[in-house]
Design a protein around this nucleic acid. Structure first.
Lengths: 246, 246
DNA sequence: AAAGTGAATAATGTATGCAAAATTCGCTTA
DNA sequence: TAAGCGAATTTTGCATACATTATTCACTTT
């Protein structure tokens, strides 16, 4: 068997990536019908690779396929956002455990670097920086503890993004002053190689965020019932990539 | 918005199902290259829906796609089987918790019916019956506690099937006399509505199976290194549908 | 004017066609 | 005879074509 070189990237793969970011960045709005011909022309490809990409996105629940009608950009319900958080609770809990089991001294050092340098004082800019750091941190955590299948699930199902639909505070559910100590405890548990503790802390972290989200949604519901976690408004300038912070 | 009727089932969906069962039943052997033209003719469709189906199966890791080369039936490594078990540990743990949170009296009755009627004495036939019951039980558990995303993950990624590649004893990892009490404890925890307990018991159940599997695999490795969890031998008569028991 | 009807239009699902890449196979050469 | 090379064949990736089904819109009817 020859080397599995094959660095070629099929068109449907590229289209898949483009579409994904278009959806995440809200350049395609939830509920929108996807006109294949138009989109294909827009992307400069034929309908064949576009179809493939859409089918993949369907499996990830980012679009909805209705047999003889077409594809629609998915619109997440409150329940689904909460479900996603529930899944993150156990999946990132597992990732934290695995990370703690296998962490190297160098990785521990990198991990301890998170939330250290920057200044996260209360200003809006500080919160933004914190939210970014939060995302980087969780991505690194998944990198550390997310072996094949787990990483795929977390990436493919785009659970993070799904959760991200609940975006107060730059996508954060709770204020940094509340979550920073939890992050620090999680970092320490992993870096010092205590799997049980790491999983426990990670799960508690997500559990609390989920509870907060639940309260938020209930309050929002009482205030004024809307369809989705986020308003439908157009893309605000250079749409920042959102990915649900905890 | 009209009713979302549309009972039409696209060809790629049917092909997807057919292929899936062909892989699970080992009518397509791991490592085999998939010749699109041939398979398409065999299934009586063109290559277009076949491609779509294959792409979906690729996401589920049942086939491997190499860009300019083609699709290959996937072959699972020991590590992946163990990973799958690790995931079942947390995911079915979550399902058990959810089930305990929301179970109705009628469902509790159904649940308590599992592992009750039949005779699982030690004969080979008894073990087979037990393995079947085990699969039904876990499927029902997922039905109870597996809301949308969780169910999709468990079904789509076919984690059960993946795990099923480790098949001693009709697909069981441990002997009924060891797992029956665990199943009974799990049933009782869920049926009596104790979420924490249910999750704990479920996780311990899978954890133990994983440990056993780990031992088995180590032993097998010492004995004689093989590529996959299962031998490559031809399909034995009416290939029984396997789905990893715990 | 509102509702219903049917032709015109558009969009989907699938098959087919074609160029580019990979594989195979026979031939040459050492 | 084994290894190396190049043409022939196969196969993939993508575009396009076409039939079927959905949607739209003008028109009739009550």
């Amino acid at each position: 068997m020859k080397k599995l070189g094959a660095r070629h990237e099929n068109l449907d793969f590229k289209v898949y990536g483009k579409l994904k970011s278009m959806i995440v960045d809200r350049r395609l709005e939830p509920g929108d019908k996807i006109l294949q011909e138009k989109l294909a022309r827009e992307l400069g490809v034929s309908r064949t690779p576009l179809m493939c990409a859409l089918k993949k996105l369907e499996q990830e629940k980012l679009v909805r396929a209705v047999p003889r009608r077409g594809f629609y950009v998915r619109l997440f319900t409150r329940e689904e956002v909460l479900e996603a958080f529930e899944l993150r609770e156990v999946l990132e809990g597992l990732a934290a455990r695995r990370a703690a089991e296998s962490i190297s001294p160098a990785e521990a050092e990198t991990l301890r670097g998170f939330f250290r340098d920057a200044d996260f004082s209360d200003g809006a800019e500080g919160i933004r920086r914190y939210a970014d750091e939060d995302r980087r941190f969780h991505r690194y955590l998944i990198e550390l503890g997310g072996f094949g299948l787990l990483r795929d699930i977390l990436e493919n199902y785009n659970i993070i993004t799904v959760s991200g639909c609940a975006d107060d505070m730059e996508g954060l559910v709770r204020h940094p002053r509340e979550t920073l100590p939890e992050h620090e405890a999680l970092i320490e548990a992993i870096a010092s190689g205590r799997p049980e503790q790491a999983e426990k802390v990670a799960r508690r972290h997500f559990h609390r965020s989920r509870q907060q989200l639940l309260r938020d949604l209930k309050r929002e519901r009482r205030a004024g019932p809307r369809r989705s976690g986020t308003a439908r408004g157009g893309a605000p300038g250079p749409a920042a990539k959102r990915a649900g912070g905890s």
